[in-house]
């Protein structure tokens, strides 16, 4: 076989593999959407669930998913940002930073069910937070923190060192250079990372089953006092999310239309995550364009 034919075979093989991957993805998405989208309706998206009867919705679960996501992001983003800035902009290479980096690596490869069980023992039991949104948010923070830290660190790495030198040579302090030059320049890429990790958090189930709980008490959407138990904002109430809901219906759902609800929920979840991904690309590109070109 001469090198030209070899080249053709190699390219053909790579196309084949890539095509196969795309095909699997499309088949999966297609299956979920085709079986799920017909179940979707305004009622389905907003109504509370029913335990034994037909016609329940996922309104509460959908709200819980977003609320948990926002809380988890509020907790994890500042910590991840601080950690990433420290690690990339300030830390020297020594045993301490090597240890921190290794810890982050290990934390990021921890199975999420282990994170969930740790969250159960520590937040739910030890700290008496119970099955609550707060416990779930903390567990998600543990799950999210290493991924987000690494993604922000990577964003900082994309900003060239000549920018740092430029800032310092202008008589800015290290912190001014980081906060006023490097961070604004890194915003588009940081934002993309945040939204992508939001997608992962949104779809997370295992870490939440034992922390945020598996029940979704009906909420009174007219009551926004976070101290009332039926208020949507109450962080101490148990809160089943969409992903947990899917798992639960499929393992022990006893409503007659369990199959349909599961398909519909899956479609909502997949659509939401797709939206996150598209939003990340769109916003990242747009912000970058606005910051860099005329």
């Amino acid at each position: 076989m001469n090198s030209k034919t070899q080249n053709k075979v190699a390219i053909g093989g790579l196309y084949g593999i890539a095509g196969f991957v795309v095909l699997i993805l499309l088949a999966l998405l297609g299956f979920i959407l085709v079986s799920g989208v017909p179940q979707l309706s305004w009622h389905f998206l907003t109504a509370p669930g029913k335990a034994f009867l037909k016609g329940g919705g996922v309104g509460v679960q959908l709200f819980n998913s977003f609320y948990l996501l926002i809380l988890a992001m509020l907790i994890s983003f500042p910590i991840a940002l601080g950690a990433a800035i420290y690690l990339y902009e300030y830390a020297k290479d020594n045993w301490l930073t090597t240890t921190i980096r290794t810890a982050i690596e290990i934390l990021s490869s921890l199975p999420s069910v282990v994170v969930g069980l740790f969250g159960f023992l520590f937040f739910v039991v030890k700290l008496h937070l119970g099955f609550s949104i707060l416990s779930g948010a903390f567990a998600l923070t543990f799950f999210n923190l290493p991924l987000l830290t690494r993604s922000i660190e990577d964003s900082l790495r994309t900003i060239s060192d000549v920018q740092r030198e430029g800032g310092l040579a202008l008589g800015l302090s290290r912190w001014e250079t980081v906060s006023r030059v490097i961070l604004p320049a890194a915003v588009p890429s940081i934002l993309t990372g945040v939204i992508l990790s939001a997608g992962r958090v949104f779809g997370e189930a295992a870490a939440l089953i034992y922390t945020a709980g598996q029940s979704a008490p009906a909420l009174n959407f007219a009551d926004w006092n976070p101290f009332n138990i039926s208020s949507p904002l109450n962080p101490m109430r148990p809160a089943e999310t969409l992903a947990v809901h899917i798992w639960k219906i499929n393992s022990e759902g006893i409503m007659p239309d369990a199959k349909a609800i599961s398909s519909g929920s899956s479609a909502v979840l997949v659509i939401a995550i797709l939206l996150f991904n598209f939003a990340a690309r769109y916003l990242g590109k747009r912000l970058y364009k606005r910051l860099t070109s005329a």
């Binding site: 000549v162 310092l168 040579a169 008589g171 302090s173 030059v181 604004p184």
Partner: peptide, 18 residues
Amino acid sequence: VQIRKEIGMVFQQPNPFP
């Protein structure tokens, strides 16, 4: 910081901030 305010520097590669 004060030194670099009084002794400015221009680099080989133009490095305007974005």
